[in-house]
Nucleic acid binder design. Structure first.
Lengths: 108, 108
DNA sequence: TCTTGACACCTAGGTTCTCTAGGCCTAGGC
DNA sequence: GCCTAGGCCTAGAGAACCTAGGTGTCAAGA
């Protein structure tokens, strides 16, 4: 529950997973679950459209892989994607400290 | 730009502001901007509907105040709202560490 | 053989959230 | 009188995520 709060943060998560090496959609979902220790257990209907969007934006590129019988679409991070990811990491830091500042109620 | 990443996090922010004392909408916007050091500069069209939603959910309650000539709707956090806010704070901690774990690419 | 379950992909439509872009009103300064 | 700041409001647009379905392969076991 409360996967809703992921809104607006999914793209950098996916890009960060793919950053470490070519991966297909299904495996990305598993990696996301594993690295977040189960916090992000995302349905395919969330992740696949996100992958398509990121590819359309030029942040990921993909190719079909049939090496093991099953067909898989394998994604890699483009150079543009790497730049965007780095920017998103910075953005996240600012966002995180801003939220914490408000939630912790520091007077100013 | 990038106020989009606030999606799903606005409610606890607003509740945390109101937690510290009765406040009206316009002042809540200013407090949010101040405490986040300018990070959250939200339009009225974002905050007012959120206040109405939170009141409808029973997390805030409001009364009209006319003590200074101008009419203002002043909000306070309900007991239910306080419980939800506490839960949201915990949720935020989990979310924050999960995002960081993924973005920092810790292998295991 | 047939069924089941894991793997692997896809998308239409619904819901919900935030933002844009307006509108209304009062008070005070010029 | 006019303008700005303070103060409230909402309809509709746009975007994101999820639900709920669909397709197909492969391996294990009844």
């Amino acid at each position: 529950m409360g996967n809703d709060i992921i809104k607006g943060h999914l793209d950098p998560l996916v890009m960060a997973i793919v950053e470490q090496g070519p991966l297909h959609g299904y495996a990305i979902i598993e990696e996301l679950r594993r690295r977040s220790r189960g916090e992000f257990d995302l349905p395919e209907g969330t992740v696949y459209p996100a992958l398509h969007r990121l590819e359309r934006l030029g942040y990921l590129s993909s190719r079909w892989d049939k090496s093991e019988g099953r067909r898989r679409r394998v994604y890699v991070l483009t150079r543009a994607g790497a730049k965007v990811l780095e920017a998103k990491r910075q953005e996240w830091k600012g966002f995180r400290s801003a939220i914490s500042a408000v939630l912790d109620g520091a007077g100013g």
